[in-house]
Design a protein around this nucleic acid. Structure first.
Lengths: 197, 197
DNA sequence: TTCGTTTGCTAACGAGCGTTAGCAAGTATA
DNA sequence: TATACTTGCTAACGCTCGTTAGCAAACGAA
């Protein structure tokens, strides 16, 4: 294990730096020479650790997909709990993933289109499954009378859209902690902004 | 006027085709040769009509910014109207722009980062101004007791995030018309999803 | 007819791209 | 000390990129 540890860390370091660049400039506009320079290497040296540029993107996108699914599964473990509670937990889990690594999240959200087939199709299938999970939760909530919405699919899209905008403005040193952000998002989405006096 | 009409239309045709490609592949991953082929031209011929690839992006991004500002101004013309009404009108205006040309909207939302300075900074300033306009409206609503939210800035971000996800899934031939979409978005954002029986 | 504009072509430029081959130094294990 | 692996270099490959120069056909306006 100790023999492979240095490899892993160098590889992980490449992934991290690449993720930051992919986020800032986009996948296509980031060159391997830029990435190498950022790491203090020559471009060719990168290929002692990775197979291709796209391999990095693949790892980031699918790695984050795993995290999102794991978070959702944990949030809905207690299927007897009120749907509103499960939904709140799922929102919090989602926000936790987004805030733990907002650069990787931004890449996950925007750069997946540069995956070539068949990875691209596989990725979209995963994303659809995740959206469907939220949609199903909302549908259950409507059926149980806990939630109201004219269209669960529409509500799910709006909900995820609000959450997924987070990496665009979240700063780890901002005034709101991830938990506070998750709480406010859940409140606002569940209660709306209208004041009934 | 008839002498400049063909020019305009050819240029506009290039802009439209480029916008569709920029949306589908991203600005950096779209080549001028690809664009030319799509138009039935050779790459060099494009430069009889445009000055550079970035010029197209610039026109799309700043053109849409104008449309968003015009829509907001029209929605808030009657400043004596209830804030909830103005906000609803502003949401509808925003959705109308997004649905009228969802390809250009997607480029506006995601590809502005490929503008070079100083255009990039100018663009971000415009975007900030637009966000501030929504934030101001929400603040007024909170002060007037029509809306409730712990943080107007937070609420504005969430609201725009929900709206701006629209180009990602909107289809002109879908079952919901732009007006219905705008109405539902406004309802859901103002009322939330929780059911109070 | 003449003139200017629009439109488009071919050919090429310098530059940068992702990636590979071959080599070598360092390091940990046996 | 011998072995294997990690890490990184230099040099170069074939390719694509955005863009330009120069030329030519078509066409409306005078």
């Amino acid at each position: 294990m100790s023999t492979t540890a240095p490899t892993r860390s160098r590889k992980a370091q490449i992934d991290r730096t690449a993720t930051a660049l992919f986020r800032a400039r986009g996948f296509a506009a980031t060159s391997m020479r830029e990435l190498a320079t950022e790491l203090g290497l020559e471009a060719g040296s990168l290929y002692s650790h990775i197979k291709s540029k796209e391999e990095i993107l693949h790892r980031v996108c699918f790695g984050l997909a795993d995290e999102f699914f794991a978070g959702f599964a944990a949030a809905t473990l207690d299927s007897a709990a009120p749907i509103a509670t499960q939904l709140r937990l799922a929102i919090e889990a989602h926000v936790r993933v987004l805030t733990r690594d907002s650069a990787a999240s931004a890449v996950f959200l925007h750069e997946w289109r540069h995956l070539s087939e068949p990875a691209r199709t596989e990725f979209l299938a995963l994303r659809d499954r995740y959206e469907a999970a939220f949609r199903g939760l909302i549908q259950q909530g409507i059926a149980a009378g806990e939630l109201h919405a004219p269209d669960a699919a529409f509500a799910a899209l709006t909900l995820l859209a609000s959450l997924n905008w987070l990496p665009a403005w979240y700063r780890p040193d901002g005034k709101l902690s991830p938990d506070e952000i998750a709480h406010r998002l859940a409140e606002q989405l569940l209660n709306g902004m209208r004041n009934y006096e």
